[in-house]
């Protein structure tokens, strides 16, 4: 009975507090959000190459990507999802390249379940690259950070052993969770795995945090839901840029692989693999 009472209490409290609570995103113009995405993206990626994906592009002019984890959603772009947009951005910027993203996302799936499913999906799809959005369900289910890290590490190693590159899409920035110890431990676990295994991570958290900072500096503090909205809009851009950098680009800075550093440029000015000066896979 206590559960029922709690659930109904929760609903009742929501009704009472609803008027005072934050509204759904007020909706900054998409061009403004995209500009902020572009600026925020500068803090998002590290100097890691996607060797197997780059090889697939070089030899087959084709890249097969498997997307696992919660499917990103872009509410402002209703005709195409994030992954369709990522495909389009890459194909537009790199002529003659065929990118196919196969979405096998299960929203709410925890790392342990995703890890088990990735192996099956890799066997079925035979991808060159995996996008793995991970952490949110584990943060809400209070998965211990050690267990989470072990699961991620084992799966990344398995993927590397099978010649599949992986890009981790980490936790989203939530101002209300910026001091939540469990949330931050999982965030650190993702960063540790990225460093230890020299893989690429889309710094979704840092990027949205940067947007939050920009908005504050402009005197327009964004609500949590505004930031969620911005995060959804930006993720496709972040992914496209991360992929472009991992495949073709080079970071200005040095540093360890996977470290969060500013990047040299975006998809448009990245150099193709065989161009002198570009990162060799």
């Amino acid at each position: 009975m206590r559960c029922v009472a709690t659930v109904f209490g929760l609903l009742g409290w929501a009704l009472i507090s609803g008027a005072a609570a934050e509204s759904l995103p007020s909706g900054a113009p998409q061009s403004v959000i995209q500009k902020q995405c572009a600026e925020a993206a500068e803090v998002g990626f590290g100097p890691v190459t996607l060797a197997h994906a780059a090889k697939a592009l070089r030899e087959r002019k084709r890249l097969k990507v498997l997307a696992i984890g919660a499917t990103p959603l872009n509410e402002r772009d209703q005709k195409q999802g994030h992954y369709a947009r990522v495909e389009k951005v890459l194909e537009t910027n790199f002529k003659g390249v065929d990118v196919e993203i196969i979405d096998r996302g299960v929203s709410g799936e925890m790392a342990r379940d995703g890890a088990a499913r990735i192996k099956t999906e890799v066997a079925l799809v035979e991808p060159d690259l995996v996008f793995w959005q991970v952490g949110v369900a584990d943060a809400l289910a209070l998965t211990p950070a050690n267990e989470f890290k072990q699961t991620l590490s084992r799966t990344v190693v398995w993927l590397q052993e099978h010649n599949v590159d992986v890009v981790l899409i980490g936790l989203k920035y939530q101002r209300s969770l910026s001091s939540n110890e469990g949330f931050q431990k999982l965030r650190r676990a993702i960063r540790d795995v990225v460093r230890e295994h020299a893989i690429l991570r889309v710094g979704h958290y840092e990027s949205i945090e940067a947007i939050d900072r920009m908005r504050r500096q402009e005197g327009e503090a964004a609500s949590e839901l505004d930031l969620t909205d911005a995060g959804s809009v930006c993720l496709a851009d972040f992914l496209s840029r991360a992929l472009a950098v991992g495949l073709f680009g080079r970071s200005k800075g040095g540093g360890a692989p996977g470290e969060i550093l500013p990047i040299a440029g975006t998809a448009k000015d990245a150099k193709p693999i065989d161009t002198p000066g570009a990162t060799k896979p």
Binding site: A14, G18, L140, E224
Partner: peptide, 14 residues
């Protein structure tokens, strides 16, 4: 709303 955490809006395919 109650827990001031928009992550719930994206949980479980919502």
């Amino acid at each position: 709303l109650v827990l001031a955490n928009p992550l719930f809006l994206e949980w479980h395919n919502a």
